[in-house]
Amino acid sequence: MALLELDGVSRRYGALVALDQVAMKVEEGEVRAVIGPNGAGKTTLFNVITGTVKPTAGAIRFAGQPIAGLPSHQVCRLGLSRTFQITSLFPEMSARQNAQLAAQARHPRRWQPFGGTRIFKEAQALADAALEQLGLSAIADRPAGLLSHGDQRLLEVAMAMAQQPRVLLLDEPTQGLSVEETGQAVDTLARFLQASRMTVLLVEHDMEVVFRLAHRITVLHRGAVIADGAPEQVKADPRVQDAYLGGLD
């Protein structure tokens, strides 16, 4: 059984079809990239999976449990965490404090008046472990706003990991990075993914990053899946080449 499964998922905004009968199965331990031209529906797909937007039709199952239409906080507690295209951190707080807040946010008893010290220590341990996984331990006490843009992007991944997800959704993790920063971030992500065997759904515009990290690629065009397969298979697919070159009508 796939860990994350989409079956006929659609999302309409009036006459606009943002997602059109999307079907996908993501196996445990798989790194799946979702690519496509601007406006293909990639971010809408993430929003539908994580509960930010409700699908118009179709089913979404996580570990066999239907999750389509659940609010975002419930989806997160079930074990799906995501990053966003636009960096969103508390700049005056340290990297460790940012990751710790993320860990506390998922704790089911975070608002209870008793046991707060234990919850705080658990969150701190999860934060430290996540920062170590992403190679950020040496700058854990530095204010997030003073980190390089590359380290801020990695910190967002660490914040998601501090929530102990079973599936990690990365939305354009190298967006806004220089060539040098992208190379460093991808090296770190590759080591992290190899060591953790985390199940990942990745949206990324940089094809070199996609082919470096992904085990399998799903290609969207105008909201519909036009190709799905191993990186080399997708790279050679004429439909994918046409979509990126503007040949599809």
Score class of each variant (00 low, 15 high):
L4D: 10
L6D: 07
G8Q: 13
V9P: 06
R12W: 12
Y13G: 10
L16P: 02
L19S: 09
D20I: 03
V22N: 10
V22I: 09
M24C: 15
K25R: 15
K25Y: 00
V26D: 04
G29R: 09
E30D: 11
I35W: 03
P37I: 04
N38D: 12
N38S: 10
G41M: 02
F46M: 13
N47F: 00
T52Y: 13
T52E: 12
V53R: 03
V53I: 14
K54E: 13
P55K: 10
T56A: 06
G58W: 04
A59K: 14
P66S: 12
H73W: 10
C76N: 14
R77L: 02
R77P: 01
R77V: 01
G79E: 07
L80H: 09
S81V: 09
F84I: 09
L89Q: 13
S94K: 09
A95L: 06
Q97G: 01
N98Y: 06
L101H: 06
L101E: 02
A102G: 14
A102M: 08
A102C: 10
A103P: 05
R106E: 01
R109G: 02
Q112N: 11
G115E: 06
G116Q: 15
T117P: 00
L126M: 12
D128F: 00
D128H: 03
L131W: 07
L131P: 07
G135W: 08
L136E: 03
L136A: 11
A138L: 11
G150N: 05
Q152D: 05
L155H: 08
E156T: 15
E156H: 10
E156N: 12
M159L: 09
M161H: 06
L168M: 12
L170V: 13
L170I: 12
P173F: 11
G176H: 07
E181A: 13
E181C: 08
A185S: 14
A185V: 15
L189D: 03
R191I: 04
S196Y: 04
T199L: 05
T199Q: 10
L201P: 08
H205M: 04
V209K: 04
R222K: 14
V225S: 09
I226W: 04
G229R: 11
G229Q: 09
E232H: 12
E232I: 00
E232Y: 00
E232P: 00
Q241P: 01
Y244R: 09
Y244E: 03
G247R: 13
L248G: 08
